[in-house]
C-alpha cells in the first residue's frame, strides 16, 4: 500500500517544480493582471482607486482598440492565406526527391530561424524608396522609373508588412506541411494511379483530406502567432502612417509600457484573451482537428 502510494506521489514530486515555475510565470501574472483590470492603475493618477468594470466598459468604447484589432485581422488573414498557399506549394515540390534538394531546403528554411526584429530592420532597408533594391528591381523589370514610397502610404505599408511576414513565416508552414506529406503512405497514391486518378484528383481526394489535421495545426499555430505580430511592425512602420498599421499588440504595448496605464492595459488584454479563446474554439471545430475529428 505504501509502495503504491509512493508510486503515485513520486511522479507528482518530479513534475512539481515545473508546475511551480509554470504557475509563477503564467498563472500568477494572469491573476495579477485580472485583479489590476479593476483598478485605475495609471502612474499619473494618485491612489490607484478601485473602479469596478469601468476599464472593461472603456475598452468597448475605445475606437483605437477595435481599429488595431481590425488591422491585425487584415494582416493575419492576408499573410496566413498566402503563407499557406506558398507553403503548400513548396511542400509539394520538396516532398519529391530532386538534385540539390537538401541545400535548397536549408535556404528555404533560413528566414524562420532569424529574429523577427532583425527581419524587420533588414526589410526596412529593402523597402527604402531611395536606396532599397525593391524599387530598383521593379524599375529594371518594368522598364520605367519606379519610386514607390512603400512605408509612407497606408496601402503600400500594408503590402510591405504582409510581404515581409510572408518571407519570414512561409517556411514555418512549409515545414509542418512537408512533415505531414512525408508521412503519407505512398501505397495510396500508387493505388490511385493504377485506378487512373489524375494528379489533381489525387491531390484533391487523397492529399487534402489526409492532410487536414496537419493543415489545421499549421494554420492554428501560425494564426495565433500572427495575432501577436509586433516586431515587424515596430521595425517597419511603428504603426504609421498615423495609426493605420498599428496592430493590437503594438497598441497594448503602448498603453502599458509607454503610457503606463496598467489597469486599462490589463482589461484590454483580458478582453483580447477572451476573443482569441473564442476564435480558437471556432477554429478547432472548423478545421476539425479535435480528437476523432
Amino acid at each position: 500500500m505504501i509502495r503504491l502510494k509512493s508510486k503515485k506521489t513520486l511522479p507528482l514530486l518530479f513534475v512539481l517544480p515545473t508546475m511551480g515555475i509554470l504557475s509563477f510565470v503564467t498563472i500568477f501574472p494572469f491573476i495579477y493582471a485580472f485583479v489590476l483590470s479593476f483598478f485605475q492603475w495609471d502612474y499619473q493618477i494618485m491612489g490607484r482607486p478601485f473602479i469596478g468594470i469601468q476599464n472593461y466598459l472603456n475598452v468597448f468604447q475605445d475606437g483605437r482598440y477595435f481599429s488595431a484589432l481590425g488591422t491585425t485581422v487584415i494582416i493575419l488573414s492576408a499573410a496566413l492565406g498566402l503563407e499557406f498557399m506558398l507553403g503548400l506549394a513548396l511542400a509539394l515540390i520538396f516532398v519529391e526527391e530532386f538534385k540539390g534538394r537538401n541545400a535548397a531546403l536549408v535556404m528555404v528554411v533560413l528566414p524562420v530561424m532569424m529574429l523577427p526584429i532583425v527581419v524587420g530592420y533588414t526589410w526596412k532597408l529593402l523597402w527604402n524608396d531611395q536606396y532599397g533594391p525593391i524599387n530598383h528591381i521593379l524599375t529594371g523589370l518594368l522598364g520605367k522609373e519606379i519610386n514607390i514610397l512603400w512605408l509612407a502610404k497606408t496601402p503600400t505599408a500594408f503590402i510591405s508588412i504582409i510581404v515581409t511576414d510572408l518571407w519570414e513565416w512561409t517556411p514555418f508552414i512549409f515545414l509542418i506541411l512537408l512533415a505531414g506529406l512525408t508521412s503519407l503512405s505512398p501505397e495510396i497514391y500508387e493505388a490511385a494511379a493504377i485506378d487512373g486518378a489524375s494528379p489533381w484528383a489525387r491531390f484533391r481526394s487523397i492529399t487534402l483530406p489526409l492532410m487536414r489535421p496537419v493543415i489545421g495545426v499549421a494554420l492554428l499555430f501560425r494564426g495565433l502567432e500572427s495575432f501577436k505580430i509586433f516586431d515587424i511592425i515596430v521595425a517597419l512602420t511603428q504603426g504609421a502612417p498615423g495609426t493605420s498599421t498599428e496592430t493590437i499588440s503594438l497598441y497594448l504595448y503602448r498603453i502599458g509600457f509607454q503610457y503606463f496605464r496598467m489597469g486599462y492595459a490589463s482589461a484590454a488584454n483580458i478582453v483580447l484573451l477572451v476573443a482569441v479563446g473564442c476564435f480558437l474554439v471556432v477554429a478547432v471545430r472548423l478545421l476539425r482537428i479535435e480528437r476523432g475529428g
Binding site: A152, T154, A240
Partner: peptide, 11 residues
C-alpha cells in the same frame, strides 16, 4: 505625431 504622419500619408 500620429496625425502628422497620417497627413503626410495623404489624410
Amino acid at each position: 505625431e500620429e496625425a502628422m504622419t497620417a497627413a503626410y500619408g495623404g489624410k
